[in-house]
Write a protein that binds this DNA or RNA. Sequence first.
DNA 1: CCAAAAGTGTTCCAATTACACCCATGA
DNA 2: TCATGGGTGTAATTGGAACACTTTTGG
Lengths: 242, 242
Amino acid sequence: MNASLAVSTVIFALRSSGRFGGDEGERALWLPLVRRIREPYDGMWALPGGPLGDDEGLAESATATLERTTGLAPRYLEQLYAFGDPHRSGDTAPGEETGRAVGRVVSVVYWALVGEEEARAARVGQNVRWFRAEELPRLAFDHNLIVEYALWRLRNKVEYSRIASAFLGDTFTLAQLREVHEAVRGQVLDPANFRRQVEATGALVDTGEVLTGVRHRPPRLYRYNTTVDLADQGPLGRAAQQ
Amino acid sequence: MNASLAVSTVIFALRSSGRFGGDEGERALWLPLVRRIREPYDGMWALPGGPLGDDEGLAESATATLERTTGLAPRYLEQLYAFGDPHRSGDTAPGEETGRAVGRVVSVVYWALVGEEEARAARVGQNVRWFRAEELPRLAFDHNLIVEYALWRLRNKVEYSRIASAFLGDTFTLAQLREVHEAVRGQVLDPANFRRQVEATGALVDTGEVLTGVRHRPPRLYRYNTTVDLADQGPLGRAAQQ
DNA sequence: CCAAAAGTGTTCCAATTACACCCATGA
DNA sequence: TCATGGGTGTAATTGGAACACTTTTGG
């Protein structure tokens, strides 16, 4: 019989390493992993996922995994890649990846972004733990490679699309948006030039409100033009396809 | 049971509409399709593909399909997307896509580029026909959408990678490379600026030879630096992964 | 008034564009 | 020698990077 199909999801959140309630602190990318409770790779950490349901779409399955693992809904979701190498389990013995199927598994992997606010209150299940994306232990299967690839895609895409706003709330200041870019891209950006660049895209909408309570000049609050997709997916975005 | 898995391939070739042997003529993108001989969509044209073999990698399966359909080997091959919507057959009745499996099918689709020279001599099988990529009939399943998406990816990628050379032989003149870009991107490019841009990448190697027999100044023949991949796939390219 | 970040202005540099012009070959 | 595309030169324009400077708040 054919290989069996699983859907896994790389879930990214931006978290301040500082205490709760504090607006400040070093922001870094985190992601939730689940501990395996069967062979192969028993006891190791792995990406959340599961077998594809009989009448379930691929993106739908990724969303369900996200909800099951964190209780959250994605602010951005995109297919990453399909991994199907016959020996990707790294083991010569046939392994099960989903906890149910046996034998060869092809994984369609998605990556998701969740909001910073929601991520603070994310449910933490029994065998779920959040890790810094840059400091992962050795994961089950080829999941280290998958996370690396997802990080690469995220970092590329944040430069030429609007997905950075997925980490933020509906309204945000330009400094907040810039800090997301800085955290993901790993470099400091000139506030003046950053402002002009995002303003030049024409996608920013001035809400007319300002953020008060800060001990300096109150920054304006912006919103993104929601009639436009966060990222151009070409024909896939224009169709109702996913 | 789970959905079954198929691998399909969008195969692009660049063809002159002129006669054989003539170097000139309007170049356009063509692709081979196969005629379905079963329900659903019996008699309609579809992308070549087939079920994933038991011990076969995904890219390996795409390469095998390419060989079976055209007798050619890909000069460039990349995974496009996994399509798995439960109702992508467009039919409420359960359909078979591969000619063997029954029920729901998830297709991992690849796209490939083959050389212009090889494509002229491509084997044309019983139920295989080449079509201009811009003038396709209504295809089986969601294959029109898939081809549209593949075209979009090709046109994007040709601008920031070296995949255009996959349509050409080992050595080529800058005019030939420019004509490939013009055909794919659908716009004329300034020869002088095009030359400087590709030279600036440092990937061009002057072979020292020239192309003779033309009734004007003989152009130099170049080669691409083959130690570099045609396109940066990030961690996927660096690993032995496919 | 002072510190701090918001926001604006200006200069410099690199890349792209447009286009003029010379070069080398076949007919 | 002429037509044709190969190849080089150069000025104009654009866009980004760097950084000085003004504005507006809380303390």
